[in-house]
Nucleic acid binder design. Structure first.
Lengths: 237, 237
DNA sequence: GCCGTGTCAAGAGCAGTGCTCTCGAATGTG
DNA sequence: CACATTCGAGAGCACTGCTCTTGACACGGC
């Protein structure tokens, strides 16, 4: 029994190392060539034949999915770390700015991975269930900041001029707010969602070349956006 | 001379029709399968052999480029038409909302084409010069609305609490504002760029599946965003 | 210690891709 | 009418993801 476990775990460990190695090489290939990942090229670099890879990943899409999940997790970790690095937990604006920059820095450092998860869906590839969990990590961080802001009395709850929200939509927004334990009026939660949308819209615009020959001061521009949107969502420094 | 012109134009016309037919089929294939466009499949459907297509497009990328340019133009036209359909030119908020919905409607109607132009760049494909002109049409429409708003005294120019803008960035923002003949302070122009970013961020989020299992009232949610952002950029209804 | 079992890599092969080149046929031009 | 240009077809190259079969290896139970 113990032997079996040991032996089994040895095998499993070797296997896990192989999987890691494949993912590492695949990640580097994606970093260089984008989403056009070639199994054969990965296998070549690993000194083995393409069919051998199928022992570890049942298809190219499964390998892509594994990389996507890792990417989501890595990005989420970056956001969480940046948030945790702000000592004054009530300085919600500083936390917002730090998390936003962490997300952008992560994306700029590995643009192709970002494109994989926030770009147009890969043809013939449907994101499986496993990805939705990790995918929510960044938005959870942003939601937590707003929740903390409200708790610290540093969230602007004024929504006087906001357009009305239809009932069915209000329910859905409330559900999202509840998911990130953000107990605020729907119009305020909506502002948070808008801030989230603008944030990733800005990163996508920059990475997908929308600012080519237009705005070169990318970091300054992003910083400005982030601070404006931080105020917009109601965070008070 | 007249004959030559006629004959030449006959040939040219046949050729142009062939090019149109190829693009139409290719567009339909993209609508069904996404960016993974197969020249051979297009040729098959046209009843000819793949190599024959190279008489009309020097490469697959050139065909994609042609489709991208058409898509930009089509989207820009949709935006311009929606703007022009608002009789009261000084009702800048209504124009903003109309244009935004037109852009989203266009994207929702042909999501794969939208992904082609606003999604992650296709691997190994670099957007050529020809695309930057048509690509600016939607933003020009939005800029014109802000410019008209200012002229009509319906643009909020208050920027008291806005974060400072570094000098180099201010120059670039001013240049963008100038390009859409929008003579406003940089902080106001920046708000416009942020609104533009949020607008396309919202469309991308919806089309790229970010709202799956979260927000189903897509049109209502978009409408709310658009109205909030219209007020944010300073448009007064 | 041997023998069955399960795991693994390799190779051949299929159907598909973009792209190039050559060759014959058609077609409009002088 | 004869010429030149244009066009479609076909073969072929190098590549892709994926499947199936084959042979080697190591591990675990008797």
């Amino acid at each position: 029994m113990a032997d079996q476990t040991t032996a089994g775990s040895i095998r499993a460990r070797v296997r896990a190392e192989m999987i890691d190695e494949i993912k590492t090489v695949a990640r580097r290939h994606i970093a260089q060539e984008g989403a056009a990942l070639s199994l054969r090229a990965v296998a070549r670099e690993l000194g083995m034949v393409s069919s051998a890879l199928y022992r570890y990943f049942p298809s190219r899409d499964e390998l892509l999915t594994a990389l996507i999940i890792d990417a989501y997790d890595s990005m989420g970790e970056a956001a969480e770390a940046a948030d945790a690095a702000i000592p004054d937990r009530t300085d919600v604006l500083a936390r917002w700015v730090a998390v936003a920059h962490a997300l952008r820095d992560w994306a700029v450092a590995q643009p192709h991975l970002y494109g994989l998860i926030y770009g147009s869906p890969v043809p013939g590839y449907a994101a499986p269930e496993d990805t939705i969990g990790p995918a929510t990590r960044p938005v959870v961080v942003l939601g937590a900041i707003m929740a903390d802001a409200k708790a610290a009395g540093r969230l602007d709850l004024e929504t006087g001029a906001a357009p009305a929200i239809p009932a069915a939509l209000r329910v859905e927004i409330d559900r999202v707010a509840e998911a990130v334990t953000m107990d605020v009026p729907a119009a305020v939660a909506a502002r948070g969602l808008i801030g989230w949308t603008e944030l990733f819209g800005a990163i996508s615009f920059e990475l997908f070349g929308r600012f080519n020959d237009t705005i070169d001061e990318r970091r300054d521009w992003f910083d400005h956006q982030v601070r404006v949107m931080g105020a917009f969502v109601g965070l008070r420094g």
